[in-house]
């Protein structure tokens, strides 16, 4: 490959950089023209996890393209050391050399990798850069779609599975409202539980109050009662609102205020630091070694 440039110094630097062994960009460019098209599936832990993956694999057969599967895992707690039981993203950083390549002509994902939920944008950006020819992104989450719509330069589609299809199997849809299940059973169960708890308290309220108002260690009784009721009645209320069709709208941008000029901790440049050494030639010594 010829690298043409009027600036001789710049050409030399590029040549030396490639000669140094990092020929990835050049090879990647050459390979990409011969590679098939790909679609990226970003999968969360919401709902039926296999539905979107299966749909993507079927789609990849029809479109004659490959699937790259990115599974989002919970954020890594700070300060913890990664363990063997952790998901791959925690044991090893997402890196093309660590991706599992399993494509052998059958409908399987070409690459499977993991990323933390908070880093979905950077993970997708890196995958698009490293793997190449990703034509579009398919996800099962509204939140992920919102994030990627802001950052990704390729189209993002959200698909959800209707697992409660009366004829078996499931339909895929981009409209959540049409396939959202009504939690009738849960509402009835938690409603009955709540009613039973209220009936139990008010049936023998005089007797109950004798113990609840004693103070001291009996303080645990009203506190525990309030917590138990909040679990039962809280679950009932949540399901009741869902049953009535009142759902939350998940939209990430709505919760972030625009802060022009506000210093961002992640991009804050580090101040250059001055170091004093006892031996002013220490660097020369190290280089010789």
């Amino acid at each position: 490959m010829q690298i043409s440039s009027n600036d001789e110094t710049k050409t030399l630097k590029l040549e030396s950089w490639l000669a140094a062994g990092n020929r990835r960009s050049e090879r990647g460019w050459l390979e990409s023209s011969a590679q098939p098209r790909r679609l990226l599936v970003v999968r969360t832990r919401n709902g039926d996890q296999s539905a979107v993956k299966d749909y993507a694999l079927q789609l990849s057969r029809r479109l004659d393209c490959e699937v790259v599967l990115l599974t989002l895992v919970d954020a890594e707690p700070h300060g913890d050391e990664p363990t063997a039981s952790d998901p791959p993203a925690r044991r090893a950083p997402s890196c093309p050399s660590n991706f599992t390549r399993s494509y052998d002509g059958e409908a399987k994902p070409l690459i499977e990798c993991h990323a933390e939920q908070d880093e979905v944008a950077s993970a997708v950006e890196r995958l698009c850069r490293e793997i190449r020819r990703i034509e579009f992104i398919l996800t099962d989450s509204d939140v992920v779609k919102d994030i990627l719509s802001e950052t990704a330069v390729i189209p993002v589609f959200r698909m959800v599975a209707d697992t409660a299809h009366p004829e078996g199997g499931c339909n895929m849809s981009s409209n959540t409202a049409t396939i959202r299940k009504k939690p009738v059973g849960k509402t009835i169960i938690f409603g009955a539980l709540t009613a039973a708890l209220y009936a139990a308290v008010f049936w023998k309220s005089d007797l109950l109050m004798k113990f609840f108002a004693r103070g001291g260690l009996y303080a645990a009784l009203p506190i525990a009662t309030a917590i138990i009721f909040s679990f039962a009645h809280g679950a009932f209320a949540s399901n009741l609102w869902s049953l009535l069709g009142i759902h939350a709208r998940t939209k990430v941008e709505a919760h972030k205020s625009i802060s022009p000029g506000a210093p961002s901790p992640k991009v804050k440049p580090k101040r250059p630091r001055a170091y004093a050494y006892v031996n002013p030639f220490h660097n020369i010594e190290l280089k010789r070694k």
Binding site: Y198, V201, F202, S205, L208, M209, F212, A213, R214, G215, G216, Y218, A219, A220, L221, P222, I223, T225, A226, F229, S230, H233, G234, A237, S238, L240, W241
Partner: peptide
Amino acid sequence: AMHGMVDIRLTLIILAGSLMGVQ
């Protein structure tokens, strides 16, 4: 509660409404 001042009946009635409202 350690002073025995909580009327659990009042608490639970208010809680019945507020848990619906807060959600």
